[in-house]
Nucleic acid binder design. Structure first.
Length: 540
RNA sequence: GCGCCUGUAGCUCAGUGGAUAGAGCGUCGGCCUCCGGAGCCGAAGGUCGCAGGUUCGAAUCCUGUCGGGCGCGCCA
């Protein structure tokens, strides 16, 4: 464009320009605000700049159509440059999808990292409840998105199986066993009675040996039982953890002590009122934090600090914590402690998911694990189904506060959008089966002319957008763009199905081209659902 | 009091400076001689909490303000 437009002065900052998909397809396949951004540095009207570029592109398309991926370029007020992609380009993309379906949607990795994602991390004092649900789904979905972006992800679960809570759980079981009332701080859920029925005689006998603290011993046994149940629940919803880390082991293996020592060496701790404090304010925190109590016991925060060091010792480039919004007060101190130990604070990040307000017929469900009135995660999944629950959480941003009406979810389960998407997938699978019966298979090489029809043009444009959707999801580390896209692609396919008859034995060429489009749509739906951990059934 | 999050259609939620603010559910009205009707088409429904500001352009950025949630332990 040097001949028609002035040069940008050397000291002028070059503005960031964007290329995007117009909301209105009539505007073209891609649009850019380039001309509007250049208006100021070039001192020209945006519409004029856009026209010069559009003319140049049009000249290229006319003179060397085989070299240009575009079919046309046009200008719209106040200075948008809109282009249309050629059918040949689209046809080649479809060929590539069918040739290597597993690679479709895979994006190029900029910088592969080892990432540790810690989530759920509920202590084994009872089964997982619906209160733990969002953390489980948000964490798993984040891991899937990170993996889609090429990161090496470790899913980690942190728990305390030795603290006062565990002892209280043990005391509750002991009381039931002895026919005594459950103590003040004890647990009352049905699962406590179940634990009692599972309690093996030898364990009970050993707990009652002289000199043994029965509540403590039974608590340790119960925690193990409960943890097994938690693992089973998580497996059921499709989340497997690579590492289960016990808080007690951090102390036993010396990580906590060494971390405190490290902070001391670097001059970030001091003593006051008989306790040892971490000077968190030096890193911008509101107040300093106790790490060793005046009675010599380390705080929970001390274990956190040791855990950071322990995690980094395993070679991770990045630590991510999935926490409920109520933990935001602890974010700064943990990151500050990491920095104080010499780690990069940027390498320690917390994703705070907002609270889910569980509602039944418009009335909030109040829960207390201790009092025993709670809904377990297993019960929720039994009511609404794993796929529907996954979709529910995947389609909402992690930080938005949301309502979950259980009755509504049950009522809507048959009309849940997840089934709409799965139905589209099953429908395509059925068409392909039927086509194969009459000897029709998807075309391996698509004729660009086959994409000229309106139904084909709309469907192919929806399909080829998929990698951008994945890239966006990786970038923002959220999944709701994927659910929205999958819904849109399903809608586009249903419209295609209505307008374009796929199986037509009298017109095998057109039929095979449409089968190729249908198959590409199916591959894309399966990939999008798979990314979310949701099944893509061939029949429903 | 201080800090973080949040306010978009009847409901649940998208929209990370661009064109006419979208989806699902719900409501109303249509569509089965034909590849799966768990589908399709159409309609109604919005002062983007409010008020200023920045910008060619603001739901989006800034300031103020009102409402909602959460956090401010030698608890875990």
């Amino acid at each position: 464009m040097s001949g028609n437009l002035p040069q940008i002065e050397r000291d002028q900052p070059v503005p960031a320009i964007e290329v995007e998909r117009p909301a209105n397809p009539e505007h073209g396949d891609l649009a850019t605000n380039l001309a509007m951004k250049l208006a100021k540095p070039l001192r020209r009207a945006p519409i004029q700049i856009a026209q010069v570029i559009a003319d140049e592109l049009a000249w290229e398309i006319a003179n060397a159509p085989a070299q240009s991926p575009l079919a046309s370029a046009s200008v719209a007020a106040p200075g948008f440059l809109n282009v249309r992609v050629s059918n040949a380009t689209l046809a080649r993309t479809l060929d590539a999808i069918l040739a290597a379906p597993a690679d479709w949607g895979r994006i190029s990795v900029v910088r592969p990292r080892q990432v540790n994602v810690e989530f759920v991390s509920a202590n084994p004092t009872g089964p997982l409840t619906i209160g733990n649900a969002r953390g489980a789904f948000v964490g798993d979905l984040l891991c899937r998105v990170l993996e889609a972006g090429g990161q090496q992800v470790t899913r980690e679960y942190y728990f305390n199986d030795a603290g006062g809570q565990i002892r209280n759980l043990g005391a509750s079981v002991v009381a039931l066993k002895r026919g005594e009332p459950i103590p003040e701080d004890g647990y009352h859920g049905d699962y406590v009675e179940e634990l009692l029925t599972q309690l093996p005689d030898p364990v009970w006998a050993a707990a009652n040996e002289p000199g043994v603290d029965a509540a403590d011993a039974i608590g340790r046994w119960a925690a193990q039982q409960v943890r097994g149940g938690i693992e089973a629940s998580l497996t059921h919803l499709g989340v497997r953890f690579d590492v289960w880390k016990s808080e007690a082991s951090l102390h036993a293996d010396g990580w906590v002590g060494r971390a405190v020592e490290k902070l001391r060496e670097r001059g970030h701790v001091y003593e006051k009122d008989g306790a040892i404090w971490f000077a968190s304010t030096a890193f911008g925190d509101d107040k300093d934090r106790v790490i060793i109590r005046s009675n010599g016991e380390p705080t929970y925060f001390a274990a956190d600090i040791g855990y950071v060091a322990e995690k980094f010792s395993r070679g991770y480039d990045h630590l991510i914590y999935i926490w409920g919004a109520d933990h935001h007060g602890t974010v700064a101190r943990v990151r500050n402690a990491a920095e104080a130990m010499g780690f990069d604070q940027q390498a320690v990040q917390m994703l705070l998911y907002s609270w889910v307000r569980f509602v039944r017929d418009g009335v909030e469900v109040s829960m207390s694990k201790r009092a025993g009135n709670f809904i377990t995660l297993d019960e929720l999944l039994a009511e609404v189904g794993v796929d529907a629950a996954r979709w529910f959480f995947a389609s909402r941003g992690a930080t938005s506060a949301i309502d979950f009406d259980i009755e509504l979810a049950k009522k809507q389960s048959a009309e849940n959008p997840v089934y709409y998407v799965q139905y589209a997938h099953a429908r395509i699978a059925s068409i392909l089966r039927k086509a194969a019966e009459v000897g029709l298979t998807p075309a391996a090489t698509l004729d660009p002319a086959a994409l000229e029809g309106a139904p084909e043009a709309a469907l192919v444009r929806s399909i080829v957008r998929y990698p951008e959707v994945v890239e966006d999801a990786v970038l923002v580390e959220e999944t709701h763009g994927i659910t929205a896209y999958a819904t849109e692609l399903a809608t586009t396919f249903h419209a295609f199905y209505r307008d374009a008859r796929v199986i037509e034995e009298s017109e095998p060429d057109r039929s095979r081209a449409r089968l190729a489009l249908a198959e590409a749509a199916r591959v894309t739906l399966a990939s999008a659902l798979g990314l979310l951990g949701i099944s893509a059934p061939d029949r429903m």
